[in-house]
Amino acid sequence: MRSGKIWWLASYPKSGNTWLRAWLWTLVSDKPVELEALSRFTGNAASRWQFDRALGIPSAALSYDQECNLRPAAFEVLATETRPPAFFKVHDAYHLTPEGKALFPRAATAGAVYVVRDPRAVAVSLSHHMAEPLDQSIAFMEDHNAALARSTRVLSDDLRQRLLRWSEHVESWLGAPFAVHLVRYEDMQADPHAACAAVAAFLGLPCDSATIAAAVEAASFSRLQAQERASGFTEKPRHAAAFFREGRADGWRQVLTPKQVARIVAAHGAMMQRCNYDLSLTPRVAGRAAACQPNAAFSTGPRQSASQRQAPRRARTTPGRARRRRPKQE
């Protein structure tokens, strides 16, 4: 493990970043995952508090361009001041600052693990997370100007993070000028032992079979979900029902309409193919109309009965027929 350098744990939002961090927690500490402490275990590349502390100036007194131009300098400070292993969660795309510097400077970087997830599943997870209609999430993933913490009306805890389009996000990280280990969310599910061992080997962490098995078990989706139910999770947005919701790789097939799937494939098909996603997969059940409702909080609606699942597929796209259920408020 190189000291004085940062390992970026990068992903588009809702793509398995927290799961990856939970693995690393156990690999590094050899202790069960503590969800509440997970946010402090790794740095957050977008943390306003961290930026202010590293540079010695309050970002609240800076414009967005000033903030963005100074982030590489902040990372160089953090690289030297963070005790190894310096893991930083990242949702930004790998891009240049307004003055043309790499946002994530090579001088501060040891390498990156990039988690990619099928954009059809990302769209569903994102709509739950943001409590917004599916079509809005799909449009967000197509927007070159998409960003997190993008409101100009309020100061958020995180700095603004440019995401670009989903496929641009993936491409930006795969083309970064340092070592990037690509891991697919679907492989983390299908063979977590192999995926975790590969990540551990890339990062120079223990990767013997017993250690990997313990990490995979300690950070299983059901355990994380149970912890969130018992004591909450600070990274869950106020309006989202839960952070760890379903954790399925192909849950989108029960939710998206054929039209929505076609739209995602049309926008991101080339990158999906590059990431070995099967473009021919289709929805198993005709889409739920609630997802198409403008301005409606997203809901998948009640679970389908067996008879409904076996019924002939027919898209229900009439908004008025949608059955909606608002996300649970906590």
């Binding site: 540079l55 010695g56 100036i57 100074l70 300098a73 902040a74 160089e76 400070v77």
Partner: peptide
Amino acid sequence: EAIFQTRGRDEYLL
């Protein structure tokens, strides 16, 4: 530092 320098207590350059 990254964006500022100081000399003694008397000078701070940002």
